[in-house]
Simulated assay, not measured.
Amino acid sequence: MENDAPPLPPHVRELLAARIHDVPDYPQPGVVFKDITPLLADPEAFGALTEALAELCAAHGATKVAGLEARGFILAAPAAVRAGIGFLPVRKAGKLPGATLRESYELEYGTAEIEIHAEDLEPDDRVLVIDDVLATGGTAEAGARLIASTGAEVVGVAVLLELGFLRGRARLEPALDGAPIHALVTA
């Protein structure tokens, strides 16, 4: 999708990609886990990632950043601080106290539910959804639907890494009503 987001310089994309390590056969045989902890441990790479995400917030006029549990929290919170906007945790069901809004979604092995606090979004909020990896797209799709159900606008989804072979983008795009998907690194 076309968008007005600033392009990621090739050297930054290369830095981020070099800090994502493949772990074969984890958590089960045949799966190649994408470990982002080496990136998080490198202040230059983590700083570059935070800056890139904050620039996306500014480019889209976001007023809030929604971080998808759990690794999305790690990326979204510093981006929100850097951008000077609010952070909204999108949690697994049952993890938030008080009144919540909930969205169910299907996984390849069953169903799951995510929640946000009912009072954390206003209809005039513009929300950038952030997660670490776009794989099959189910969590991001549910997050976008949940945020939109409040009347707030989802201005885009940003991920560190997109696993294109899993076709999550195709699943996610219809839930975004034309808002862009930004993948800083693709595999």
Score class of each variant (00 low, 15 high):
residue 38 P to N: 15
residue 135 A to V: 07
residue 141 E to H: 12
residue 29 P to E: 08
residue 71 R to Q: 04
residue 6 P to D: 05
residue 44 E to C: 10
residue 26 Y to T: 07
residue 96 L to F: 06
residue 120 D to A: 14
residue 72 G to L: 01
residue 152 A to L: 01
residue 118 A to V: 06
residue 51 E to N: 14
residue 89 P to N: 11
residue 90 V to H: 00
residue 11 H to Y: 15
residue 74 I to M: 02
residue 92 K to V: 06
residue 122 E to D: 04
residue 43 P to S: 11
residue 182 H to A: 09
residue 172 L to A: 10
residue 42 D to P: 14
residue 178 G to L: 06
residue 78 P to R: 12
residue 86 G to C: 11
residue 106 E to G: 10
residue 57 C to S: 08
residue 158 A to N: 08
residue 22 D to R: 08
residue 68 L to F: 11
residue 147 I to H: 01
residue 77 A to G: 10
residue 176 L to T: 13
residue 71 R to H: 06
residue 169 R to T: 14
residue 24 P to S: 08
residue 3 N to D: 11
residue 72 G to D: 07
residue 72 G to R: 11
residue 70 A to V: 05
residue 4 D to C: 06
residue 37 T to Q: 04
residue 153 E to L: 05
residue 26 Y to S: 04
residue 134 L to V: 05
residue 83 A to Y: 00
residue 148 A to N: 12
residue 145 R to S: 14
residue 21 H to E: 14
residue 42 D to S: 11
residue 175 A to R: 12
residue 36 I to Y: 06
residue 117 H to T: 13
residue 60 H to G: 15
residue 182 H to M: 09
residue 99 A to F: 15
residue 79 A to R: 00
residue 158 A to S: 03
residue 35 D to W: 05
residue 76 A to D: 01
residue 137 G to M: 15
residue 181 I to D: 14
residue 75 L to A: 09
residue 160 L to H: 10
residue 154 V to G: 08
residue 20 I to S: 13
residue 154 V to F: 02
residue 149 S to A: 07
residue 70 A to N: 09
residue 170 A to F: 05
residue 159 V to A: 04
residue 161 L to E: 08
residue 161 L to R: 11
residue 28 Q to N: 07
residue 154 V to A: 02
residue 78 P to W: 03
residue 168 G to P: 13
residue 63 T to V: 00
residue 55 E to C: 08
residue 90 V to M: 09
residue 98 G to A: 04
residue 164 G to A: 10
residue 82 R to P: 13
residue 5 A to E: 05
residue 130 I to R: 02
residue 70 A to W: 07
residue 159 V to W: 04
residue 86 G to M: 03
residue 97 P to M: 02
residue 59 A to M: 11
residue 113 E to R: 11
residue 10 P to S: 13
residue 51 E to W: 00
residue 88 L to G: 09
residue 71 R to F: 10
residue 132 D to S: 07
residue 15 L to N: 07
residue 177 D to L: 06
residue 179 A to P: 09
residue 186 T to I: 05
residue 172 L to C: 03
residue 115 E to F: 02
residue 36 I to T: 13
residue 49 L to V: 15
residue 96 L to Q: 10
residue 74 I to Q: 06
residue 86 G to W: 00
residue 16 L to S: 00
residue 68 L to V: 07
residue 182 H to Y: 05
residue 158 A to R: 05
residue 173 E to F: 11
residue 83 A to G: 13
residue 10 P to H: 12
residue 41 A to W: 01
residue 162 E to Y: 14
residue 30 G to Y: 05
residue 65 V to W: 15
residue 23 V to G: 08
residue 94 G to L: 12
residue 5 A to I: 10
